[in-house]
Simulated scan of single mutants.
Amino acid sequence: MMKRHTISVLVNNHPGVLQRVAGLFGRRGFNIESITVGQSEEAGLSRMIIVTSGDDNMIEQVQKQLNKLVDVIQIVDLTAHPLVDRELALIKVSAPSKVKPMIISIVESFRASIVDMGVESLIIQVVGDQAKMNSLVELLKPYGILELSRTGVTAMNRGEGSNK
Score class of each variant (00 low, 15 high):
Met133Gln: 12
Ser121Arg: 06
Ser97Gly: 00
Lys132Gln: 14
Ala131Asn: 13
Val93Ser: 04
Leu83Ile: 15
Val84Tyr: 07
Met117Asn: 02
His81Ile: 09
Glu87Pro: 03
Lys98Ile: 05
Asp77Val: 13
Gly128Cys: 07
Asp129His: 09
Thr79Ser: 12
Ile106Glu: 07
Lys98Met: 04
Leu88Gly: 05
Ser135Glu: 13
Gln125Lys: 14
Ile124Gly: 04
Gln74Val: 08
Gln74Glu: 15
Ser109His: 11
Lys132Arg: 15
Met133Phe: 11
Val115Glu: 07
Glu108Ile: 06
Val99Pro: 02
Val127Tyr: 03
Glu108Trp: 06
Ile73Val: 15
Leu90Lys: 07
Pro82Trp: 11
Met102Asp: 12
Lys100Met: 08
Leu88Pro: 00
Met133Lys: 08
Val115Asn: 00
Pro96Phe: 07
Gln125Glu: 15
His81Asn: 13
Lys132His: 13
Gly128Ile: 09
His81Trp: 13
Asp116Ala: 11
Met133Pro: 04
Ser121Ile: 02
Gly128Arg: 05
Ala89Gln: 03
Val93Met: 06
Glu108Cys: 10
Ile124Glu: 01
Val119Gly: 00
Val115Cys: 04
Asp116Glu: 12
Ser97Pro: 09
Ser109Ala: 12
Ala95Cys: 06
Ile124Asp: 00
Glu87Ile: 10
Leu88Arg: 03
Pro101Ile: 03
Leu78Glu: 08
Val115Trp: 01
Gly118Asp: 06
Ile124Phe: 01
Val119Ala: 11
Glu108His: 13
Ser135Pro: 01
Val76Glu: 13
Leu90Asn: 05
Ala112Arg: 02
Ala95Asn: 05
Ile123Asp: 03
Ile106Arg: 08
Leu78Ala: 13
Lys132Phe: 10
Phe110Thr: 09
Met102His: 09
Val107Gln: 03
Glu120Gly: 03
Pro96Tyr: 10
Val99Met: 07
Ser94Gly: 07
Gln74Tyr: 11
Ile73Cys: 07
Pro96His: 10
Arg111Tyr: 14
Leu90Pro: 02
Ile91Glu: 06
Phe110Tyr: 15
Val127Ala: 11
Gly128Asn: 08
Thr79Ala: 08
Leu90Glu: 05
Ile123Glu: 05
Ile124Ser: 03
Asp85Ile: 01
Asp116Ser: 10
Ile123Leu: 05
Met117Pro: 01
Ser121Asp: 10
Leu122Asn: 04
Ser109Val: 03
Leu88Lys: 06
Ile106Trp: 04
Asp85Gln: 11
Ile106Ala: 07
Val99Ala: 06
Arg86Met: 07
Ile91Val: 14
Ile75Gly: 09
Leu78Thr: 10
Ile91Thr: 06
Val126Glu: 01
Val119Ser: 10
Ala131Thr: 13
Ile73Glu: 14
Arg111Leu: 12
Glu87Gln: 10
Ile75Ala: 10
Ser135Asp: 13
